[in-house]
Computed example of a mutant assay.
Amino acid sequence: MDLVIPSPDKLKVVSRRQYDPPDSLSPAAVARDPFEQFRTWLTEVQDAVLEPEAMSLSTASAAGVPSSRFVLFKQLDRRGFVFYTNYTSRKSRELAANPHAALAFYWKEVSRQVRVVGRVERLAAAESDEYFRSRPVGSRLGAWASEQSSVVGEGEVRARLEQVKARFGVADDTQDADIPLPEFWGGWRVVPDEIEFWSGKPSRLHDRVRYLRVEGSSDDAPQWRIDRLAP
């Protein structure tokens, strides 16, 4: 990437990168099930990409005002893509008011993207609890200490953390502790209606394959229509 500054109030990006991955992507070459295709791609990139589980999560308010941020993908099950967060955060409030979301993975090192659009649902408390107890002690304490997305004063979160450590009897060198799942924290699942796989190609003539859920097919055993999209 090169930057051009034609005037003090203007900036332009001049990109010279050309994609040239060795593989091709087509409806005939992908798995019939997009979840299987995603598992294949994620497995293939896990050693080549730094933090391949990072994904953009886009939500919208009840009025349709969008917002995006990066979160960590944690699980793919038979229904969809799972991530965890505070249920009082901005993202959770927007998902509660407008239960739809979009995800995007970008794996620059291998010139691949995956885009997901779907409906959202909360995970059962038991599922969230199982994951929460697998987290490091510091992450579990942090979930209790942070009122995510709220305005805080300087040092306020650190003070809350010390209070939480005292509450659960955790010292600085504690390796494990019985820290329960907060009632305000847990998982969301994006149940996809659309999944697109993208492979970068020269001259911006990228390969794009989209899976659309067949209307009326169940969330637990969906059927998919597979199409090639113009770049």
Rank of each mutant, 00 (worst) to 15 (best):
68 S>P: 10
74 K>V: 07
117 V>R: 07
118 G>S: 08
65 V>M: 11
52 P>N: 10
112 R>G: 09
121 E>F: 00
84 Y>C: 01
54 A>F: 15
83 F>P: 12
93 R>H: 04
56 S>T: 12
103 L>V: 04
74 K>L: 09
117 V>L: 07
91 K>T: 06
87 Y>Q: 04
119 R>P: 02
53 E>W: 11
73 F>H: 15
100 H>Y: 07
63 A>W: 05
101 A>L: 02
72 L>T: 15
120 V>M: 08
58 S>I: 07
53 E>R: 13
106 Y>G: 03
63 A>L: 13
91 K>W: 01
50 L>P: 06
69 R>C: 15
59 T>R: 00
85 T>W: 02
61 S>R: 03
116 V>M: 07
80 G>S: 00
105 F>L: 13
83 F>S: 12
75 Q>E: 10
65 V>G: 02
96 A>I: 11
55 M>C: 13
48 A>F: 00
116 V>F: 03
110 V>M: 06
116 V>N: 06
51 E>D: 14
50 L>K: 14
104 A>Y: 03
59 T>A: 01
48 A>P: 04
106 Y>L: 11
92 S>R: 01
82 V>A: 02
61 S>Q: 04
90 R>W: 09
83 F>N: 12
48 A>M: 03
115 R>I: 08
76 L>Q: 11
85 T>M: 05
90 R>Q: 12
99 P>S: 12
108 K>T: 03
94 E>S: 04
84 Y>V: 01
89 S>K: 12
81 F>E: 02
113 Q>V: 10
75 Q>C: 10
66 P>A: 12
72 L>Y: 07
57 L>P: 03
102 A>W: 06
99 P>M: 08
71 V>A: 11
48 A>I: 04
75 Q>A: 07
118 G>E: 06
114 V>G: 02
63 A>K: 15
87 Y>D: 02
64 G>I: 08
92 S>I: 05
70 F>D: 04
55 M>R: 04
66 P>W: 09
112 R>T: 12
